[in-house]
Each structure stands twice: as structure tokens, then as C-alpha cells.
Design a protein around this nucleic acid. Structure first.
Lengths: 332, 332
DNA sequence: GTGAAAGCGCTAACAC
DNA sequence: GTGTTAGCGCTTTCAC
């Protein structure tokens, strides 16, 4: 690798001058500047970002910690962060973790060692306490999809309870009375919140959930198929299903249709997330959009403001899902 | 930030000793090691990776350049690279670029400045010549989805022509005679290759493509809908369609069904890519799987071998798509 | 306008 | 087993 010294030696100037040229700094004679610039270009000189970061104590990476970058949801998250990173001429350092606290800690550590000041962290396993400690020691740390008491201003989260309510209102407005739920048997918090909001809101409409019409399966397409099968086998009548996420909803639809139950003619389905595939499915899925890109963008902006020591403008921390009416729900 | 000096001063040892402890190096007394270790833990000391990289001249990042991480295809690519990165205790530095040569160059530059030796580059705009130059100066550079003459051993690519042939054989084996194509009006190379392979193979089966049955639209769902509409309006009869990608295929199916044409009863559809959504669609899409995760993993492995100066084992550079038979194609 | 020199945090000889 | 020191590539004072 060509270094600043090489350039200086060959150009017969000091490293200080080369540095000035490289940084488009002031006080360099035009002829010197041109000569040095040309040499840098010719020799393909690239300033060593590590050395530069070391001396300037600055950092142009923004860290993202997610369990799985290929999941469309996390990919969208990364995209949102990247949008803001690019605006600020920063780059994304991705640190993937497994779904356990140890691995999450490890991911944070790696980013810290790399002097990453801005970190967007999707943590599902570390405790509130541990996260609070991290928030204390890392000023640019933003938690996404968490809401911890000690640092609400560092959290960007979706109101799942309200999401459940929105779904309930939608189905109630379509006059559904016999309503089923397909929930997730993993990831305790989100499904529970969605369900809670849903049930609470139903009761405001003088509707009650028959607990036998709530089934718990794996939060993917297969789980949705299984869940629908269980609901059908139960023999209980229902005219609509609130499903934990879109993947399950699509699985459920496929099983229903295979059993001669048409969606939405016989049964209405509402999903959650509005991932890409919800608009590709047939019928197109009515669902609640999770504004993850916007949330990630806001998280990144907030983080950058925090490390710049700007008084972060009163930031928005709680986000609401939005009802996307498509074709899988209909009047009862 | 706590530095090695702080620890050394407080522990009353030299920085060398602290360094040894931090790196679990040899020749440190047990009591000293314990004492220093405790202090590091207590003070939350994290070795500065920049400084370390500067002096050891090593690097633990693997760069990935893609136009858009939220695209499921590129997300899968990143995932594949990350799988190998983790195995090697490296991290992903993502550099996104727009679809123009300038921005691609810029992305490469950024990674180089960060001393990134391993780079997986998805370039669609830079010329073969420019890429060849880069390959010459960056030993760990791997081009994914390109095949340049000067550096075939640095390229990992999918044989789109063969993909077209596989599709043709499949439809021919189902006795289809009147075959249509939906291709992409952008991204010249891949669609052209797929089409070429397809048409070539058909002729081996004494089948010819009616050029009026080839339509070009945007490579997304909407484009697929449009394309199907055009095919229907043309009045030409056809019993199957080879579609450029899955998103278009799903759009096409939806338009066909809206027009009372059942898939696969009336028309068979074969897509390309096997992205997530192909198995969620109804009917489930028959398609050609693009082994992008495996390709990305192999690319990352190859890159790491190259910078380790290992004689890379005769590597595989050309990959074949694989036919995934689902429900959208049937006997004619 | 240019250069000399200090020092960012760390590792790795080398000395003891 | 531990300390001293040079130096990685760079920026940034401070002289001149």
C-alpha cells in the first residue's frame, strides 16, 4: 500500500503537505498542490482510514446489530439506517447476532472496539438493566423495537397493543362477530401485546374472544397452515382471523382455500407487518404496515444527533402501524 | 475512552503487559494477569481496533458492495457473505452504491481506505476493463454476477443461458408448443442470456418462438401484469410463459386469473430466482432457483483464501440455477 | 506556503 | 515475567 510517506518522498515535500492536499486543506501552493495531487492519483494513494480515525478520533461507521440480515424485516431496517448513513457520508458495519444475550453483547463489543459511536441495536434477549447500562456508556446507542424504562428517549418502538386495537376496529366495522386469532408460540412480547390490544378493543364493541379460537404456532407460513388447520378442525365457527404476521396469514389462507373456505367471502383475514409478500399474495392481504424503514431512519438520525451533541429535537419514539386495506377482509 | 495507558498506569504495569493480557499472550504472571484482567473488566476497557489494525496491518472486515440491501436478493447475498465472515470472526462492512459506475467506484474506494482486503462486489455498471484493473490491485476482490475475461478466477456467476435452457426443457417436456416470454426491458445482459438459452433450447425440440409472443416490461410485479395484459390482447394463443423473474411471474398470474385464464390449467408459468415470495404465491410458482446464498458464501471463502495467500483450491465459478417444480406449470 | 515533530492507541522486538 | 521503545499512517500544532 502506498502511504503518505511514499508520496512525500517522491514528491519531495513533507508529509504535512501531502496531508494538506489529501484533505483539501488551506495553505498549499497551487503548483505544489497540483503536483502532489497528480502523484497521489498516479500511485493510487488511498489515505489509511484507520490511521486517520486514530488521530482525529472520529468515526464514520454506523453500527447495526440484527439477528439476520436476510430476513426482509431486518433488511428493511438496515436499508433505513443506510439511507441516513449515506446522507452523512457514513457506512454501515453490520454485526449479526444469534438470539441470545451473550451473542448480543458480543456484537456490541465488536462495534465498540471499532470505535463505532452510532449504534442501532435490535435486541430481544438482553435484559432492560443490561441495556440501560449500555445506554449509559454509549451515547449514540439507539434501541429499536424495545422500550426500556430507564432510557425511553433512546428507544424507537412500535405500539403493538395499538396495532391489535386497529385490527379489532377494522374487523368490528365489517360486522364480524365470531373472530379467531392466530398467534405466535415464540417471541413472547410482541404477540402478547398484539393480542391484548385486539381483545381489549373487541370488548369495547361488545365482542368477546372465544379462547378456544386462539391458536399458537410457529410464526411462519407453515405455522399459519397448521394454525388454520387447527381452527378448522375445532369445529367452532368463525368469520375472520387476526393473524400474528403476514407469513402466517398467507399460510392460513392457503389452508383455508384448500378446504374450500374462500377468503374473504367466507372468512376475512388480517395480517401484520406488510412485508413485501403481502401484496403479492392472492387475495392481496389486508394487513397492518410496520413502518420499519421510517423507524430505522429516525433511529439513525437520532443517534447521529446524539453523538454530535446536538440537543436532539423532541424525537418521536412510539410508532403506530397503519391499516392497509387490501382484498383479504370483507363485510361479514 | 479508557486506553491501554490508563490501565497500565492504574495497574502499575507497563503497556506491554496490558497488551499481553488483552491478547491472552504468553509470559504474564498469573497474579498480574488476573489483576490486570479485572481492572480491564472493571473499567470497561476495549482495545481500539483502529490502532490495533494500524500496527498489525490486519483487517477483520469483509466488504460487500450492493446497490440495495433491502432487496431480498441482495439481502440473501449479504447473508451468505456474513455466514462466512462469522466463521472467520470478521464483520461485514456494507457499501451501497447507486446503479452507476461513479458510485460503484466510490464504494470500492471507501472500502479500500478502510483497509478492507476482502471485497465482494456486485457491479453492474463498471466496465470489464475497470474491473480488471481493480482485480489487479485488490487481491481479495471477488466479482459476483459478473464474468470478466481477464480474471475468470475472481468471478462467481450464474449461467443464465443454461437457466433459459432448463426452463425450455421443462416446458417442452410438458408438451407445450405455443410458448410466450415475458422479459425485462432493463438490465440488458441477464434477460438477454436467459432468453437466448431458452430460444436455443426450444429449437432443439423443433419449437420456435413467435417473436410477437415476447414482451418486455419492467422487472417487477406491475411489469408482469402489464406484460400479461399485452400477451392476452395480442390475441395470439399460448399455453405457457417463461417469465424473467418471480415478481413478474406473480404479476402475470394475477392478470391472467383476473381474465379468467387459470394457471396452470390454461397457461403454465415458469419464473426465475426463487425468491421468498415464490412459495407464498398461489398457485405456488414453478421457478429456477438462483443459488445466491451459496454463491455468496463461496465468494467470501474464495476471497479469504486469496488474501491468506493460500492456493485457492480449484474454485467453482459458474453456477447453475435449479428447477423447482411447484404448481404453476402443468402438462399441456 | 512549507516542514519538523509530537502523538493518537496499540503491538512487537528486544533488553533485563 | 516485565518494561522500554520504536513505529504503524496519519493530522496538527508550531516554527520559519
Amino acid at each position: 500500500m502506498t502511504t503518505i510517506k511514499d508520496i512525500a518522498r517522491i514528491a519531495n515535500v513533507s508529509v504535512a503537505t501531502v496531508s494538506r492536499v489529501a484533505n483539501k486543506g488551506p495553505k498549499v501552493g497551487d503548483k505544489t498542490r497540483l503536483r502532489v495531487q497528480k502523484l497521489m492519483d498516479d500511485m493510487g494513494y488511498k489515505p489509511n482510514a484507520n490511521a486517520r480515525a486514530l488521530v482525529t478520533n472520529t468515526n464514520t461507521t454506523i453500527g447495526v446489530i440484527v439477528p439476520d440480515i436476510s430476513d426482509p424485516f431486518f433488511a428493511a431496517l438496515a436499508q433505513g439506517v443506510d439511507n441516513i448513513a449515506r446522507e452523512n457520508k457514513m457506512q454501515l458495519l453490520i454485526s449479526t447476532c444469534s438470539i441470545d444475550a451473550e451473542s448480543e453483547k458480543n456484537a456490541i463489543n465488536l462495534l465498540q472496539e471499532r470505535q463505532c459511536r452510532s449504534i442501532i441495536f435490535h435486541s430481544k434477549k438482553m435484559s432492560d438493566d443490561e441495556l440501560a447500562h449500555l445506554c449509559a456508556s454509549i451515547p449514540g446507542l439507539i434501541l429499536i423495537n424495545r422500550n426500556i424504562e430507564a432510557y425511553p428517549e433512546r428507544c424507537i418502538w412500535l405500539d403493538n397493543i395499538e396495532g391489535g386495537k386497529i385490527a379489532a376496529r377494522h374487523l368490528a366495522s365489517l360486522n364480524h362477530k365470531n373472530i379467531a386469532c392466530i398467534s405466535s408460540k415464540y417471541e413472547i412480547e410482541d404477540p402478547a401485546d398484539r393480542l391484548k390490544g385486539f381483545v381489549d378493543e373487541l370488548s369495547l364493541h361488545q365482542l368477546t374472544m372465544n379462547s378456544e379460537l386462539i391458536v399458537y404456532c410457529a410464526p411462519n407460513q407453515l405455522g399459519g397452515e397448521e394454525a388454520a388447520q387447527q381452527l378448522i378442525s375445532s369445529g367452532k365457527g368463525f368469520t375472520s382471523i387476526f393473524v400474528y404476521n403476514d407469513a402466517m396469514a398467507i399460510g392460513a389462507i392457503s389452508t383455508l382455500e384448500d378446504n374450500g373456505i374462500r377468503v374473504p367471502r367466507d372468512v376475512s383475514i388480517i395480517g401484520f407487518d406488510d412485508v413485501l409478500l403481502s401484496q403479492y399474495s392472492r387475495p392481496k392481504l389486508t394487513t397492518l404496515a410496520y413502518p420499519i424503514v421510517q423507524m430505522a431512519e429516525d433511529a439513525a438520525r437520532l443517534s447521529i444527533q446524539l453523538i454530535a451533541d446536538e440537543n436532539p429535537k423532541s424525537s418521536k419514539n412510539r410508532y403506530l402501524p397503519r391499516l392497509i386495506r387490501r382484498e383479504s377482509t370483507a363485510d361479514c
